[in-house]
Write a protein that binds this DNA or RNA. Structure first.
Length: 278
DNA sequence: GCCCAGGTATAAA
DNA sequence: TTTATACATGGG
């Protein structure tokens, strides 16, 4: 793999196991939309156009940040050895099926604050509607840029009340958004510090937020804190584990349980009949 | 109209 | 400790 920076563009040649559509539209993040073959999104204050040309991944930063600052390199987790991880996961037969279906999924390393809110919003919800709520959240309370609206800061949301959030049309989750915002803004929930705690302690800290249960906490750890050993579990995954893996525990996947889970999740979402049939 | 969605808080058994 | 229910909104 070779990374080159030119003006405001990062060009990655020979990146294994990456497909923009599979990675950006598999339900792990909600701020990207496709316009033709170009994926457009803003996260962490960085707006970019992402496209693939032959063996190259092209990330064009369109907000006034230097693309060479490493944000997208970290976000896309370019330095992780996916070939090695996938070789390990290949030892499990059902994993082979899942990885063969969408071999271009990489688990993103998203900003923890955005991930926390996104997965609070995601509960008992569907992906199109989650995207809509987050878009309205950014448009109403985020910082406008030349490219679009950045994600709102916790202190901005902390000063609001439930009526202010009515425009989001997010239902009862408004109270959860406010509780998370206030805990982060006040310093009661230091996300950077929580990210490096032992897994059990990190889970407990996240779950002090109203509306954050075991599932949301696990998603924040995996997608927003770089904890690849975390393992988001939900009704789909429980069923999938039973059907595909005879109910064996997630620990069989070792330190990359979360990455394995993402392949399984995407497969189950797109093959509901197979999983339901059992 | 109907079912359901990357769940959680709450109460009850 | 486990199980049942309500919860706001709207996509399909």
């Amino acid at each position: 793999m070779e990374i080159n920076y030119r003006d405001n563009t990062m060009i990655v040649d020979g990146l294994p196991a990456f497909d923009a559509a599979q990675t950006l539209d598999c339900g792990q993040c909600f701020q990207f939309t496709a316009e033709g073959a170009i994926w457009k999104g803003i996260t962490g204050g960085h707006g970019a156009l992402i496209r693939q040309e032959d063996s190259m991944l092209v990330v064009e930063e369109v907000t006034p940040n230097p693309v060479s600052d490493g944000f997208w390199r970290r976000y896309l987790d370019l330095d992780r050895d996916y070939e090695g991880i996938m070789a390990e996961l290949m030892h499990f037969e059902p994993m082979r099926r899942c990885m063969a279906y969408a071999p271009g999924i990489r688990v993103l390393r998203q900003p923890s604050w955005e991930t926390l809110l996104a997965f609070i919003i995601s509960q008992n919800n569907n992906v199109p509607r989650i995207k809509g709520i987050i878009r309205r959240l950014c448009e109403a309370f985020g910082r406008p840029t030349a490219f679009g609206w950045d994600f709102p800061r916790p202190d901005v949301l902390a000063a609001l009340n439930e009526e202010d959030l009515a425009i989001l049309r997010c239902g009862w989750r408004a109270a959860y958004i406010l509780d998370a915002s206030r805990k982060v803004a006040s310093g009661a929930l230091p996300l950077e510090e929580i990210a490096v705690l032992p897994l059990k302690e990190a889970r407990e800290a996240l779950q002090t937020v109203k509306g954050v249960g075991p599932k949301v906490a696990e998603c924040v750890l995996l997608y927003g804190m770089g904890r690849m050993e975390a393992f988001p579990m939900d009704v789909w995954m429980k069923r999938a584990m039973q059907v595909l893996f005879d109910g064996r525990p997630s620990t069989i996947f070792g330190e990359y349980a979360g990455i394995a889970q993402q392949y399984i999740f995407h497969y189950c979402r797109t093959h509901p009949h197979e999983v339901k049939a059992g």
